[in-house]
């Protein structure tokens, strides 16, 4: 399966490094918006087609591309989708646009998300990828979920300009996924950027409110779910196992350290969304073959 990446910022670069290691996926094209983009220079000689003209610059190669990865911004993705929708090819969206169904490997896919275009897979957000496996594991075993909350802190240096300018897109996409994974009527998401030097890893905390049930069962469930994520994000780990606060509130905290493919290991937020995108594409290859 041949792939193209749109966007040569932090996420595009990290994703490209991962795709170049895969045997069942061939990264053949990358599109940026500036000829001077360091992202394009980095892949000179490593990726067949490089263009600074965005999606336009890929048009002549559309026939050769089986899957598009969009690593730009939510607004840009909405524009890109207008161009790509008619091609009938797979599009993996790493922006928080919510154009496609929210995808979290092994947890969320097109099921239960009616009305979403079948070829568009939305990778939600870094906070969504980190929290949804926990939210889903907890929701399967508590007796009733009234409210779910996911708060994340990430290193300032790992948040690119698109994230900074559109923090509301992040919040909405993360809340949408948390709601889908929990069945709660109300979901809340919080994002904090921390500029500490040296930069710190990504941390995500899930608060769940409802009728909780047996804590020991929840503890086992959460640990199993952590192991599943670790298969594609080795730096994913449990920081605080399920703790009950009040009679009806429990908390789990997760830490995400990155693989250091592009930004250093503190940027777990980058790693988890690009790793999830690769995993989603590989799952597609597995189904196709």
């Amino acid at each position: 399966m041949r792939a193209a990446i749109i966007g040569t910022g932090n996420i595009g670069i990290d994703l490209a490094e991962k795709l170049l290691r895969e045997h069942s996926l061939e990264l053949i094209a990358m599109a940026g918006r500036r000829a001077s983009s360091p992202g394009l220079a980095r892949f000179e000689g490593r990726v067949k087609y490089l263009t600074a003209d965005g999606v336009d610059g890929l048009e002549e190669h559309f026939d050769e591309i089986d899957v598009f990865f969009d690593a730009t911004s939510a607004d840009s993705h909405r524009e890109h989708w207008k161009r790509l929708e008619g091609l009938g090819k797979a599009v993996v969206d790493l922006t928080p646009s919510r154009v496609g169904a929210a995808f979290v490997p092994g947890v969320l896919d097109h099921e239960n998300q009616p009305g979403k275009p079948i070829h568009n897979m939305s990778m939600v957000t870094c906070g969504g990828q980190a929290s949804v496996p926990m939210v889903s594991a907890l929701a399967r075993h508590v007796e009733r979920v009234d409210y779910v909350e996911v708060s994340s802190s990430i290193a300032s240096l790992s948040a690119g300009p698109a994230t900074r300018a559109n923090i509301d897109d992040y919040i909405r996409a993360t809340e949408n996924a948390a709601r889908l994974a929990s069945g709660a009527d109300v979901a809340k998401s919080i994002l904090v950027l921390n500029p500490v030097e040296p930069p710190t890893i990504m941390r995500t905390t899930v608060h769940m409110k409802g009728l909780l049930g047996d804590l020991a069962t929840l503890d086992r469930t959460v640990r199993d779910a952590v192991d599943l994520v670790r298969e594609y994000v080795p730096g994913y780990r449990l920081l605080v196992p399920p703790v009950q606060h009040a009679a009806d509130v429990l908390t789990v905290s997760i830490g995400v350290e990155g693989a250091g493919d592009y930004l250093p290991p503190y940027a777990g937020n980058l790693d988890i969304i690009t790793a999830a995108a690769v995993k989603t594409a590989l799952d597609m290859v597995a189904v196709a073959s």
């Binding site: 708060s151 802190s153 904090v192 950027l193 921390n194 500490v196 941390r203 605080v240 908390t251 905290s253």
Partner: peptide
């Protein structure tokens, strides 16, 4: 020492542990 900022309250429990 960890230079936490507002909104990272959940780290208190991690640090305590």
């Amino acid at each position: 020492a960890r230079k936490v900022v507002a909104g990272q309250e959940s780290i208190i429990r991690e640090i305590a542990r």
